[in-house]
């Protein structure tokens, strides 16, 4: 009797499993990525629950964000347009939780610097987080280096930037950062500053998704610089600013039409400043 019951249960279970598993796996795969970031309990609860495993819990949160970001970036075929910045507040929340669990976790700062500035435009939030990290990672020159860049490029607070770059120079023992500070501390050097920063980030990035995002941004800024150089030559020759990017192409100052990897199109502002309809962010385009 009981053998029959076992056989029937086993058979029914196997058939049922076979019928369900394919659609189920499909459903799980098709679940929107936003949902996969999932719900994470408040830091207080996490802190209590993780007892003496806070470092692992922190690392786990960072990885959750990283995996999520990886799917976001990995889904695109090469050269395609990224169609959404993802759940930025969610990622930011998790990264903040991570550094509360382990205030030394460099991955969290590194990643937060990436998304909070370029994607979320939360420059001050990013710098506050970096300030928090500097209290713990007192040896690390990366944090003041990031904060210095944010202050100079995004916040235009050159005094503060100089202070951060000084700190980065002292910690790394590289005078480069101090000269970097003075060289780019003006509006006109902005693009060069960004390219120098992004170039460094691409070189040191280990994670593929992160590297890809920096590369994307670097190529956008290289295009900006190409346009700027053409614009400056045009002004030197003609004594006036060009009206549009198209004019630069038609008059031969630009060899090829510049391509915005974020899917926007470049244009010249009234003061001659190069801008793009994508605002260098994913998913803002296609109006």
């Amino acid at each position: 009797m009981s053998r029959h019951v076992a056989t029937i249960l086993l058979l029914a279970g196997l058939i049922g499993y076979g019928a369900v598993i394919v659609p189920f796996a499909g459903y799980m795969r098709a679940k929107p990525v936003e949902e996969k970031l999932g719900y994470v309990p408040s830091v207080k609860v996490l802190k209590s629950l993780s007892v003496d495993q806070k470092e692992v819990a922190g690392a786990a949160l960072v990885f959750k964000v990283l995996m999520y970001y990886g799917t976001l970036m990995g889904d695109l075929p090469k050269g395609a347009i990224v169609n959404g910045p993802g759940d930025l507040p969610g990622m930011s929340r998790l990264l903040h939780a991570a550094v509360q669990l382990d205030p030394y976790n460099m991955d969290a700062y590194y990643f937060a610097q990436g998304i909070l500035t370029w994607d979320a435009h939360q420059y001050q939030v990013a710098n506050n987080l970096l300030d928090y990290g500097m209290k713990y990672r007192t040896w690390d020159w990366f944090l003041p280096f990031f904060a210095g860049f944010n202050s100079a490029y995004f916040l235009k607070d050159y005094k503060k930037a100089a202070h951060y770059y000084d700190l980065a120079g002292d910690l790394s023992g590289e005078p480069l950062y101090k000269s970097l500070a003075s060289r780019y501390m003006q509006e006109s050097g902005e693009t060069d500053l960004a390219i120098a920063y992004l170039g460094g980030m691409v070189k040191t990035a280990k994670n593929e998704a992160v590297k890809k995002s920096y590369q994307l941004r670097l190529s956008a800024f290289q295009e900006v610089r190409r346009i700027e150089q053409a614009r400056d030559r045009f002004r030197a020759d003609k004594g006036s600013l060009p009206i549009s990017v198209e004019q630069l192409v038609q008059s031969g100052y630009l060899k090829s039409v510049p391509v915005d990897p974020y899917g926007g199109s470049f244009y010249l502002g009234p003061d001659g400043k190069v801008a793009t309809t994508s605002k260098f962010a994913l998913g803002v385009t296609k109006k």
Partner: peptide, 21 residues
């Protein structure tokens, strides 16, 4: 090696956590 900037640190974290557990 999944870590972006602190591979060694993460391996220490994981080792100590595993021992702890």
């Amino acid at each position: 090696s999944l870590s972006m900037r602190q591979v060694t640190e993460l391996s220490v974290t994981l080792s100590l956590s595993l021992i702890s557990f």
